[in-house]
Amino acid sequence: MIFPGATVRVTNVDDTYYRFEGLVQRVSDGKAAVLFENGNWDKLVTFRLSELEAVK
């Protein structure tokens, strides 16, 4: 189960963010908004829950 605050990895091989890890900001309607941070940039991207896996 994916909840806000969880760290997730993108599993969709066709996505630009494949294998990126980010922090879930919100979850609704089968989608999750994931925040990616890297140095001087932040990006908030929405994914279907089926495209994400929780990082242990």
Rank of each mutant, 00 (worst) to 15 (best):
Q25C: 14
N40V: 11
V13K: 13
E37G: 12
D29M: 08
T7P: 05
T11V: 13
V27R: 02
K43M: 13
G5E: 02
V8F: 01
R19E: 08
D15Y: 05
Y18H: 05
Y17I: 02
E53M: 09
D15A: 12
G5V: 02
R9M: 08
E53Y: 06
E51R: 02
V24D: 00
E37H: 14
G39R: 08
V13H: 08
L35H: 07
V55N: 03
T7K: 14
L35T: 05
I2A: 02
V8Q: 00
T11I: 14
E51N: 05
L49C: 07
N12W: 04
T16W: 10
N12E: 04
S28L: 10
V45H: 06
G30E: 06
R26S: 15
A6I: 12
G5F: 04
V10W: 02
T46I: 14
V34P: 01
E37C: 15
W41N: 10
I2P: 03
E37F: 14
V10I: 07
D42L: 15
K31E: 10
T46N: 08
V24I: 04
G5N: 04
V24M: 01
T7W: 15
A33T: 14
D15R: 08
N40P: 12
A6M: 15
G39S: 09
T7Q: 08
R48Q: 13
G30M: 05
V10H: 01
A6Y: 08
N12C: 06
V55L: 08
E51L: 04
D42P: 13
V13E: 10
P4R: 08
R26T: 14
F47A: 01
T7D: 02
L52E: 01
L23P: 02
N40D: 12
Q25G: 04
E21C: 12
E37K: 15
I2C: 05
V27W: 02
N38R: 12
L23W: 07
V55P: 03
E37R: 15
E21D: 04
V27G: 00
V55F: 07
A6D: 13
A33V: 15
N38Q: 11
W41Q: 11
R26N: 12
N12T: 08
P4Q: 07
R9H: 04
K43F: 12
V34I: 07
W41T: 11
R9K: 07
T46A: 05
V27Y: 03
S50Y: 09
E21G: 03
S50N: 10
V27D: 00
F20I: 07
F20K: 12
T46G: 04
G39I: 08
P4T: 07
M1Y: 11
F36W: 02
L44M: 08
